[in-house]
Each structure stands twice: as C-alpha cells, then as structure tokens.
C-alpha cells in the first residue's frame, strides 16, 4: 500500500524507468558462471576481483546471505551460492543445489599456469537449523575427501546480548563450539 501511494506521487518519468527496469529483470539478471550468485555479467564482480583471496570459498544458501556476510567487510575470499538447502522432506536433494558448480571450482588443471590458485578452504555459512546443518555436513562428506578443508561458521550467543536471556539450544551450542583463549 505504501509502495502504491509512493508511485502515485512519483514523477512519471521515474515510473517509466522503474517499470522498464522491472520488466528487464529476467533478461538482465544471470547467475555468475563461477559462484552462481546473481549478476548482470558473465562473472560477478567478486569472482572477477583478483585482489580477493580465491583460495577460500564461503558457501551460502542464498544471495541475501552473501550480501550479509559481504557487509561485514571482514571476509576477503570468494563466495558460492547454493540457491537452497538440503531438505528431503521438502523434496530438495543435492541435485537441486548448485553443488556441481562448486565441485568444478575445486578441480584445477595443474598444466594451466594462468589458472587461479587452488581452493584450500570451504567455509559453510548456512543457517544453524536442521536443514542448514545437514547441508554443511553433507558438503563436508563430499568435499573433505578431496583434500580441501571444510569448516562451519560458529553459532552461539548473540554479540551484545545478555547471556541470561539466551535460549537453551543456543547456549548448548555455544558451549559445545567453545573456543580456547
């Protein structure tokens, strides 16, 4: 409703440009050939950026999650977007996720000197719930034997929150995944 009212007030020229932009979403937007993130080019700006660390791939389930991690400014590696999580009950199997594309990134041709350095670590950044955990575990079983380190983002007590109010499951996990100081 708020959106509709804003349109009524908006400049007609702006509205025309907006409607064209909306109309071309499907034509313009593609999935990056490397990481499967949404982009308007063949290869997304992050995969094309040689200054990023291409030996570390952060795996996320959807583009929004990639954006959230990118906003932290801490991660300087590259990403891979699965476009979903494993959910046998919802009919989502490994074949429905962009796992083949991820595996393709791990195979490097040793004779190709121009190729990017080999991948050393995969960080699985799926949500800490049944589906996200299963996806992470599945990837570790798939990729671990290939000699690539697979790690999982930590989960636990929210930063800035009060320990007293954390729910039991979260606290349990925070204790299990504790870190040595």
């Amino acid at each position: 409703m708020r959106l509709a009212l804003a349109m009524v007030k908006a400049d007609p020229e702006y509205l025309r440009a907006l409607s064209e932009a909306i109309g071309s979403v499907h034509a313009q937007l593609k999935q990056c050939r490397v990481c499967c993130d949404f982009t308007s080019d063949e290869v997304c700006p992050r995969c094309a950026d040689a200054r990023r660390d291409h030996t570390t791939i952060c795996v996320v389930s959807q583009p929004q999650d990639r954006m959230a991690i990118e906003r932290t400014g801490v991660f300087r590696g590259v990403y891979h977007v699965l476009h979903g999580v494993l959910d046998p009950l919802g009919g989502v199997g490994p074949g429905d996720l962009r796992i083949d594309a991820l595996l393709a990134r791990l195979h490097r041709d040793p004779s190709d000197a121009a190729a990017l350095p080999g991948v050393e670590e995969i960080i699985v950044a799926t949500s800490p719930n049944v589906e996200g955990d299963a996806t992470a575990l599945y990837l570790s079983k798939l990729i671990g034997p290939l000699g690539v380190r697979v790690s999982r983002i930590a989960s636990g007590v929210a930063v800035g929150g009060e320990l007293e109010y954390a729910d039991v499951t979260t606290l349990h996990r925070a204790l299990e995944d504790r870190r040595r100081l």
């Binding site: 494993l86 490994p94 575990l137 798939l142």
Partner: peptide, 30 residues
C-alpha cells in the same frame, strides 16, 4: 525431522550408491 529425512532417503529409488551413502551418513550423524 532428522528421522523422517533418513526414512525418506531410505525409501528413495534411483539414488546413486555414493550419493545415498553420503546423504544417509549426513542424517545419521545428526
């Protein structure tokens, strides 16, 4: 949820053997 997921995979037909192993292993760990 994990139990129903494992049962679903057990009943699934046409999964390649290695894939099936990995999936069962995933849900069994949980």
């Amino acid at each position: 949820k994990l139990l129903r997921s494992r049962n679903r995979i057990l009943r699934e037909e046409g999964l390649p053997a290695a894939e099936r192993e990995r999936l069962l292993g995933t849900y069994e760990t949980g």
